[in-house]
Design a protein around this nucleic acid. Structure first.
Lengths: 158, 158
DNA sequence: CGTGAAATATGTATCGT
DNA sequence: ACGATACATATTTCACG
């Protein structure tokens, strides 16, 4: 598990460019970072192999693909026990409607971003994930009307 | 603004596959959906042109790229006025630390997913986005210890 | 939508620094 | 160890049926 130190300026530049646009050819990328295509490709492969690049995905437009409900769910557990957390996580992470899960500090224990087609599907999610867990104490549902921003990239120090 | 009806079974299949893996070649994709590469590519280009596919990005491993703090911020505004909302949104969406922004119904008005290097950077975000807005009434900070799940794809009915 | 050919891009081997 | 060049392979893309 080596860390961020093994990445030089060019690696960071590659990562920064690819998380903005993974659709560009290796040639275009190589030119932008000032390397020959083969050298650039070798770096990209290494970054993939070493796990810095997890995967490449296409981001679709939710509003163009039928009505979708984005819901923020705050979950509070009964007891702060690791094994019971794991039990909840197994169910939550395994559910297709759960797109993101953050384990947070404070009164709330988990924040989930849930995406469903309609409220019926959300009710099913509640039954299958929230009410199904004996250690779940309470949850709050924040229904989103708009997803104003959705960025997957972050600063890599390039 | 045509909608989901103009997509046939193969289009949906293409979208489903590309949002799982946008790194595969058009040939591989074509084989999976049972088309020749040229026909497949034409569909992909159309889906891009029509805005169903927004962009392709590389998802990096946050934990491999230096310590990053994921923070969920719930924001409540003073008054529910559209122009004041816009003012806040302009500042929030323009800030690099704000990765996601959901406009929700209920007591809370906005939920932000903020990613920063450390608490100092979060303080700066608070000054520049939250305290800077005269219509911001209060906010709650939920600091995440783990991002247990992060999926960008959703059901396209394939 | 499919076929085949031309244009590009990717991947490999080798050499030089 | 890393990058460049040249060459081989694979993919994308276009014209046509």
């Amino acid at each position: 598990m080596e860390c961020v130190v093994s990445l030089d300026r060019i690696d960071r530049r590659i990562l920064a460019l690819l998380q903005q646009d993974a659709g560009q050819t290796n040639q275009a990328l190589a030119e932008r970072v000032g390397l020959s295509p083969p050298s650039c490709l070798k770096r990209v492969r290494r970054l993939e192999h070493d796990g810095y690049i997890q995967r490449r995905v296409a981001l679709l437009s939710p509003e163009r693909l039928g009505p979708l409900l984005h819901i923020v769910v705050e979950v509070t557990m009964e007891r702060d026990r690791k094994d019971l957390y794991q039990q909840f996580l197994r169910r939550a992470l395994g559910h297709a409607a759960v797109k993101q899960c953050y384990q947070v500090t404070g009164e709330i224990d988990f924040v989930l971003i849930v995406v469903v087609a309609d409220m019926d599907a959300y009710d099913r999610f509640c039954d299958e994930v929230l009410y199904a867990d004996p250690n779940m104490r309470k949850f709050r549902t924040l229904v989103s009307r708009f997803r104003n921003k959705f960025e997957t990239g972050f600063d890599v120090g390039a």
